[in-house]
Amino acid sequence: MISAITAPHIFHQLKWYYVAVIYIIAPVLAFCNAYGCGLTDWSLVSTYGKLAIFTIGAWAGAANGGVLAGLAAWRVMMNIVSTASDLMQDFKTGYMTLASPRSMFVSQVIETAMGCVISPCVFWLFYKAFHDLGLPNSEYPAPFALVYRNMSILGVEGFSALPKHCLTLCYIFFVAAVVINGMRDAVGKKRARFIPLPMAMAIPFYIGGYFAIDMCVGSLMLYIWRKINKAKADAFGPAVASGVICGDGIWTLRSSILSLAGAKPPLCMKFLSKNQNAKVDGFLNS
């Protein structure tokens, strides 16, 4: 009720009944995402949010601000679905560490309330510090904003705005994923390990090739570790992987602080091809 009342005051294109429909549908999607996240440790919250972009955007229509309504609905849907999966992951961690489920739930409620205050403050800080925030050539171009805006436009205008053969490729890869998963289930566990997972192959296309490189290096390290000492690798492998992931996140935090302070790197490193490097050397020597 609070969301249905307050959200339309912030985004006038998002009507109260759009928010009400989202809250009716979201629990089912939240359950699916929490279940899948528990199995794979990968939250598909943005994928469920895209459903809100397409449905609410098409429902509102271009004449009634469907683009902005779809984007606002996407954020509402993501907040609901992500909170459910995060809570279940916290319960999973609490179970492994023998923590109190009641304490975990109370902590989640406190964190959610803090996020309602801290997140707008952080956005306002960036908005005031960088006046060109979100522009293509700015320090923070926000590329995902352009991606999701185009998705919302697609939901309003229909599939006619897609590139040629885009839907055909979507159909082909969808059927291929179903067939490959069916083959994995049919051949048994011993042979299934030689058939690649469609979900694993799709992740690098979704979030970038760097993820595939990180997973490849990490898998190689775990493989060698298991050959040396399988018991220790099975016991401490998840903890080491978590530490590596957290270390990457800690540097992201430092980088954000340095960017806010306006710090500039003392030097810049760039990798070029052989031909391009020869041209640069020739230009510097001229």
Rank of each mutant, 00 (worst) to 15 (best):
L162T: 00
L154Q: 04
A239T: 11
P204K: 01
K230D: 06
N229A: 11
K189W: 06
S152L: 01
G158Q: 05
H165S: 02
N229F: 06
S152Y: 00
D185S: 13
N181V: 15
P204M: 01
I250C: 11
R226M: 03
L154I: 01
K230P: 00
A202D: 14
T168P: 01
M183N: 05
C170V: 11
A233F: 03
N150D: 10
I207N: 15
A177K: 07
R191P: 01
G182I: 08
I224T: 09
A177V: 09
I224M: 01
G247F: 03
P143G: 03
V156G: 00
Y148N: 04
V156I: 08
N150W: 02
M215C: 14
D214E: 12
L169N: 12
I180H: 03
M199P: 13
I250K: 05
A145N: 09
A142M: 06
V179T: 02
L197A: 10
P141L: 00
M199Y: 07
H165Q: 06
C246D: 12
L167I: 13
K190V: 00
S138R: 07
M215N: 05
K230F: 11
S219R: 02
I213D: 11
G208C: 05
A200K: 05
K164D: 10
A176C: 07
V217K: 04
L133W: 01
Y210W: 08
R184V: 01
G247T: 10
A241R: 14
G208D: 09
T168A: 11
M221W: 02
F205D: 13
F194S: 05
S219L: 11
G134H: 01
A239K: 15
